[in-house]
């Protein structure tokens, strides 16, 4: 069977009814949003299901949307089924006050450093990770620098604010 976005979406929906909160195909890549509670079983399913065989974890990255109340932090898994040459991504969001997510190190050893990196950047705590500590930044750093509240350089600089260039809706997205 040739797997495409629609059949893959249907297969996951069939296996986990109601667990897909949102779906879309931006630029042709199937994107599904689920909850962190469903994440481990869903990823195990797409990896081990003989029809899907998405056994390659391409990448894993954290997200921070400060405006999304209750779903500020998120994780994006890019998966690749070599057999069907199909890529897709699965997302899950959770509150920043409770930055816990399940670790996928048992499923993919490669998730080990990827999760350490996202812990380092966003402070996402991966439950079940064998060795969760900072990887790129120094151990005694007391912030999670990829969160949006941390400015890159001088946070007081306003000369290149978007509002001065005839655009709105992006206040605070300045050059810094």
């Amino acid at each position: 069977m040739q797997l495409d976005n629609a059949t893959l979406h249907a297969a996951i929906e069939r296996r986990f009814p109601g667990a897909i909160l949102d779906h879309g195909e931006p630029y042709g890549m199937l994107t599904l949003e689920t909850t962190r509670e469903h994440l481990p079983e869903m990823l195990r399913f797409v990896k081990e299901d003989p029809e899907i065989q998405a056994n390659f974890l391409t990448s894993l990255c954290g997200m921070h949307y400060p405006e999304q109340k209750g779903k500020e932090l998120g994780l994006v898994y890019h998966l690749h089924s070599f057999v069907h040459n199909l890529r897709f991504r699965i997302k899950a969001f959770f509150p920043i006050d409770d930055p816990h997510a399940p670790s996928m190190t048992a499923l993919w050893p490669t998730a080990n450093w990827m999760e350490r990196q996202e812990y380092d950047f966003f402070g996402i705590i991966f439950d079940g990770h064998p060795d969760l500590r900072r990887i790129l930044n120094v151990d005694d750093l007391d912030v999670f620098p990829m969160r949006k509240e941390y400015k890159l350089e001088d946070g007081t600089r306003t000369d290149k604010d978007d509002r001065f260039f005839g655009r709105d809706g992006h206040e605070g997205r300045s050059f810094d």
């Binding site: 391409t58 990448s59 990255c61 997200m63 994006v76 890019h78 978007d162 992006h170 997205r173």
Partner: peptide
């Protein structure tokens, strides 16, 4: 790989 998320900003 490059995973780019755009919100329409510059």
């Amino acid at each position: 790989g490059f995973y780019l998320v755009s919100d329409g900003g510059r």
